[in-house]
């Protein structure tokens, strides 16, 4: 007994449950999806699974739908995150100033974040609906006719919905960042006669850069996973104009049952995401080193 115990020290034995859980929910699915991405694995033909090598990966080159979805996703991520950052930063600057109603405004501005995205999607599906929606109705009264989910606009409407829901997140992070900055450089700038704009450019933004980059990484990664709005509102339409990458993979895997192909696409998505994270992370590291 004694020898067995010394071969497996207590610390190692206590790690076993965690190892089992990780194996079951992380490593096994990852390996399994890697395996099926190399096979012709279709839910409708499970009795006939054949090894196809890298065929799914190679086929991606000519897969217009996949690249269309990737393009839509990038437009969505850059558009939404850029707007959210700008608005969030502007609001953070306003809320950072001493104001009697500060706590009230903070509470109000943060609420959209606490609604589940699928509900937000459904909400805006009705609010913006051309026949039933209150917003097109009011705009119509002003003589403005907009079909928010029409072919040219749908993706941008989705961006606006995302901005509505997630600007508060940027606001929260950037406000925390602003409040953690030392007061002295700003006081020095005031005494030195710097204008608000000069202080913003020369002091606030450079000092806030690390926080900004972290906020961009978190929000950018999250935006990549856009699914609920598409599922609740457009289902990728009209045509494929709002089909984002996650929705596309979902469609291939769970509507067309081509799980092998979907797994290969998911792996490509992981690679692209990791590359973006690495780039941003490096930018953050250099920013921190310069401090």
């Amino acid at each position: 007994m004694v020898t067995r115990h010394s071969r497996f020290p207590l610390a190692h034995r206590m790690l076993v449950p965690l190892g089992v859980v990780l194996l079951a929910v992380l490593i096994y699915p990852l390996l399994f999806s890697a395996w099926i991405s190399l096979h012709d694995y279709e839910l409708t033909a499970l009795q006939d699974v054949r090894f196809v090598g890298l065929r799914h990966y190679i086929a991606l080159q000519g897969d217009g739908s996949f690249w269309n979805a990737m393009g839509n996703t990038l437009v969505f991520v850059f558009g939404a995150v850029a707007l959210e950052t700008l608005l969030g930063f502007g609001l953070a600057l306003l809320l950072h100033r001493p104001n009697r109603y500060r706590d009230f405004f903070r509470a109000i501005l943060l609420t959209p974040m606490f609604i589940t995205p699928i509900a937000v999607g459904l909400m805006f599906r009705f609010l913006l609906n051309q026949q039933l929606g209150v917003i097109p109705y009011l705009l119509g009264k002003l003589g403005i006719q907009i079909d928010f989910f029409g072919p040219g606009l749908a993706l941008y409407s989705i961006i606006l919905i995302d901005v509505w829901q997630w600007t508060p997140f940027m606001l929260l992070l950037l406000l925390a960042g602003l409040e953690s900055l030392p007061a002295a450089p700003f006081e020095a700038a005031r005494v030195d006669g710097a204008s608000a704009w000069f202080t913003l450019r020369k002091v606030t933004l450079p000092l806030l850069k690390p926080v900004l980059l972290v906020a961009l990484i978190i929000r950018g990664l999250d935006a990549f996973k856009i699914f609920e709005y598409i599922y609740a509102i457009t289902r990728g339409g009209p045509g494929e104009s709002t089909e984002t990458i996650l929705y596309h993979i979902y469609k291939v895997g769970f509507r067309f049952f081509r799980l092998g192909e979907a797994a290969a696409k998911a792996y490509v998505l992981i690679a692209i995401t990791l590359l973006l994270v690495a780039l941003l992370y490096r930018a953050m590291r250099t920013a921190e080193e310069r401090r």
Binding site: P182, P185, E187, A189, V191, D192, G193, K202, R290
Partner: peptide
């Protein structure tokens, strides 16, 4: 800024991302 006073702070209050030259010149650039 309209009082024409200059202040030296306890913790120096230098701008960490600017060079010494830019730090000294800050008030004049502004």
């Amino acid at each position: 800024k309209d009082r024409n006073v200059a202040m030296v702070f306890q913790n120096y209050a230098l701008y960490p991302h600017l060079s010494v030259w830019e730090n000294i010149a800050f008030g004049l650039l502004a």
